[in-house]
Structures are given as C-alpha cells and as structure tokens.
C-alpha cells in the first residue's frame, strides 16, 4: 500500500500542477477585478452571452446525436466482423486522427467552399451548387468529422464484449430481432454510449477553431468568445475565465445527468 502511494506521487503532482492549480486560477480570475478585488460582475456579465451558450450546446448536441446515429451501426458491424477486416476497418477510422486537427478542418474548407470540391462535383453532375461554407451546417459537419472516432472507439469496445451466446439464448427463447436489440444490445452498450457521448459533446461544445474556420466568423460559439477575451482586442481574461467557469459548470451538469443514467444501468446489468 505504501509502495503504491509512492508510485502514485508523480501522477498526483501532475494532476495538481496541470489540473487543480489551473482550475483554481480560472476560478480566481473569474471572481476578481484586474486590480485583484473580489467581484461577481464577471459572472453576471456572462448572462449577456446566454444565446451563444445555447447555440453552442444546440450545435454540439446535434453533432453528438448524428455521430451516435452514424457510429452505432458501424461499430456493431466492426465488432461482429472481427479478425483482420475488423482491424483494418478500425485503422481506417483512426487514420485521420494521425493528421493535425487544424489540417483536417482546413481540408473541409477546401471541400465545402463556393469553388470547392463538392460544388465542382455537383456542377459536373448537373446539379445546382450548394452554399454550405460559413453556415451552421458546416460547423456541425466539422464537429462530426473531427470527433466521430471518439464515439466509435468506446462503442466498439463495449460491443466486442457482448457474447454471441447471449443473443443466441434470446433467439432460442423466441425473442424477435427488435426485442433482442432493445432488451439486450441497447442496455449492454449503454456505458459505451454514455462515454462516447461525453467524449464527443464536451470538446464539441467548447470548440473554437471549427466555428472560426468553417463558420466564417459570423457563427460564434462559446469557445470563440473565450478566445476573444484572451487573445482579442478587449483582453479581458477575467470575463474569459468567468465564461469558462460557467461553461464548465454546464458541462458538469450535463455529465452528471449522463453518469446517473449509466450507474442505474450498471446495477441492472449486475443483478
């Protein structure tokens, strides 16, 4: 036990230095004025940006939902195929992640632009070109593309653990395909869904570069607002910290709801 404690020291100090201390700095900035006095004005000023917060949550939830819809059947197929094909399929999903995040988003700019690849293709096929770049749709597409692997990975890992014998037993007992899906597969994969949803939703809601590059600046999200406070003309880290704090609380709230859901399911599974 003592040995374990010594071994964990580097990790504890790491967490202190890079998680707890910065967190305390954010809280400190959020409740002080530039001269260091206590104030709650920073946090009350965040209320002005309520519409942006709602928009960020809305776009992030749409992106999360679509990612879930896309990855669920896909992960199921991968987990059932197994072997070499499964490995190759996983590799293809992971391949874009080896490239830089900015580069991937930049590539979408070239695809969706007015004279971009997509529109050139549409014109070639005699369709009318579409205007996607600099709209919310482009932002959502960027989010889905960038965070889809985070949804697929946990789903595949839980789905691989479902024993085929469980499904066979249900079939033997006369279960229809639909009830196998709702009564066995969904409950067994819920933990994967929960962690996938959080891993997509959290970075999507706080992103700033996707909305900047694909949203054309006119579709500000909460992350852009924070960025503007730190590196923009106004330079107001106190307001920026307050917005971050509010965002963190909101995300924590969302996640605690999700986690509760997961715990209940775990109990159901254990009994």
């Amino acid at each position: 036990m003592k040995k374990l404690r010594i071994l964990s020291l580097p990790y504890i100090s790491w967490v202190c230095m890079f998680t707890i201390v910065p967190l305390l700095i954010v809280i400190f900035f959020a409740i002080t004025t530039p001269s260091g006095e206590f104030t709650i004005l920073n946090i009350s000023n965040v209320g002005r940006y309520f519409s942006v917060i709602v928009k960020s949550i809305l776009l992030a939830s749409i992106a999360t939902f679509i990612s879930l819809i896309i990855s669920y059947p896909f992960s199921y197929i991968i987990s059932r195929v197994g072997g070499k094909t499964g490995k190759i399929a996983m590799m293809i999903i992971m391949l874009p992640m080896w490239m830089n995040f900015l580069l991937r988003t930049c590539a979408w700019m070239t695809i969706l632009e007015k004279n971009g690849l997509l529109n050139k293709l549409l014109v070639y096929l005699n369709f009318s070109p579409v205007n996607i770049i600099n709209t919310k749709i482009a932002v959502v597409i960027g989010m889905i593309y960038n965070y889809l692997p985070f949804m697929v990975l946990p789903l595949v890992s839980v789905m691989k653990k479902i024993e085929p014998s469980v499904i066979e037993a249900a079939q033997d007992l006369g279960s229809s395909g639909f009830s196998i899906f709702t009564k066995i597969i969904i409950p067994l994969t819920t933990p994967g869904v929960v962690s996938g949803v959080t891993m997509v939703f959290v970075p999507a809601v706080s992103t700033f570069i996707i909305s900047r590059m694909l949203g054309g600046g006119g579709n500000l999200l909460i992350g852009d607002l924070i960025d503007m406070q730190f590196l923009g003309n106004s330079y107001n880290p106190h307001l920026g910290a307050a917005i971050s704090l509010v965002l963190m609380v909101l995300i924590l709230l969302c996640m605690s709801v999700m986690n509760q859901f997961e715990c209940e399911d775990m109990e159901g599974k254990l009994v």
């Binding site: 998680t19 967190l23 959290v202 706080s206 960025d227 971050s244 924590l252 996640m255």
Partner: peptide, 19 residues
C-alpha cells in the same frame, strides 16, 4: 477522468501559454 479531460480542454489555452 472524463471530467478532468474536459477541464483540460477548456484550460488548454491557459496551459498552452504556461508551456
């Protein structure tokens, strides 16, 4: 773990500067 991760993402701006 995920909570910490999310905090890290939000704080990355600050931390990046520190780095």
């Amino acid at each position: 773990m995920i909570i910490k991760r999310s905090c890290l993402i939000i704080l990355s701006l600050l931390i990046l500067d520190l780095h």
